[in-house]
């Protein structure tokens, strides 16, 4: 099975072509116009520890891809490399056809790559809706960061488009009633949903989700999988999702990468990788 089967190229208009982003060189590696994010031969070492070795993967436009692996496999390290929090010792990362290996997380975010974290990390003094508003403004109205200071806009009503986007995401994640609740003290399940919403509010081209279903019960997990599938279908957002729960991944993706001890050991449909002997060995210490 090919990962890009059926993927549609969906370049969208946006404001990411700022001067600092234009300085990024076109990626020499990206040959596939359907690819939104690509890692090639990525290697990361922490001292003598090899965290990632020769890892390559692609995320096509408008596809949700899973990333699995036992604890310590290097999944979060790979996320950190893809999102710019860690610079790899070897290999390269390209985003929308640009080589972003050395680009900061901020630049990648402005290009349309956002992520969530394994440990929910919200902005405690903001409400749920304010999280989404901030995510929306930073990507759709980035100049407001400065112009708000010298205009009376902050005293007026929020933009209609902003309200619509916030309401849409609240509805998508079932958070309408919690819109005006402060993030401080939210239960873990809600925190994870707000993190996903924060990522979606930026209308990203690619969203990296680090164990979004951890701590959710069965119903919540089902709701989340529906929400993610909708975001992919309706918005064309590409996603890479770390998850241990194979059933969760089965419901939302047709393609999964499996990492073990820093190496990519398998890729394919969830049912295919479930049958893979290396995967079974990695998870259960046995070949079957």
């Amino acid at each position: 099975m090919s990962l890009t089967d059926g993927a549609q190229s969906q370049p969208r208009d946006g404001n990411f072509e700022t001067s600092e982003l234009r300085n990024l060189a076109p990626s020499p590696n990206t040959g596939d116009s359907d690819t939104v994010l690509e890692a090639r031969n990525v290697g990361v070492q922490f001292g003598g520890l090899v965290a990632l070795s020769d890892v390559s993967l692609v995320i096509p436009y408008g596809k949700l891809v899973g990333l699995m692996g036992p604890n310590g496999a290097g999944k979060t390290t790979l996320f950190n490399v893809l999102s710019g929090f860690i610079r790899p010792n070897s290999g390269s990362v390209s985003l929308l056809g640009r080589d972003v290996t050395s680009a900061s997380p901020q630049i990648r975010a402005r290009m349309g790559l956002t992520r969530t974290f394994q440990l929910p990390d919200l902005f405690k003094s903001l409400t749920v809706a304010e999280h989404l508003s901030l995510g929306y403004r930073l990507h759709h109205k980035p100049k407001r960061l400065w112009t708000d200071l010298v205009t009376p806009r902050a005293w007026g009503k929020p933009d209609k488009a902003e309200v619509e986007q916030v309401e849409k995401i609240l509805s998508l994640l079932g958070l309408e009633e919690m819109a005006n609740v402060l993030a401080d003290g939210l239960p873990t399940g809600l925190t994870r949903l707000v993190q996903v919403g924060l990522g979606l509010a930026a209308s990203p081209r690619v969203l990296l989700l680090d164990e979004p279903a951890a701590g959710l019960d069965t119903n919540e997990t089902r709701e989340l999988s529906v929400a993610l599938s909708r975001a992919v279908e309706q918005e064309g957002t590409s996603m890479l999702v770390i998850e241990h729960d194979l059933d969760f991944l089965l419901g939302i993706t047709g393609f999964v990468y499996v990492l073990d001890a820093g190496r990519l050991i398998a890729s394919g449909s969830p049912s295919e990788v479930a049958q893979d002997r290396q995967v079974q060995s990695a998870y259960f210490g046995t070949n079957g």
Partner: peptide, 24 residues
């Protein structure tokens, strides 16, 4: 109430999440 104010609150509570949003 400005966007910069929201951004300052964001950076206060989580720098990684702020950077992942594109905030400096």
């Amino acid at each position: 109430q400005s966007t910069a104010g929201l951004a300052l609150s964001a950076t206060r509570w989580s720098e990684p999440s702020s950077r992942a949003l594109g905030l400096s």
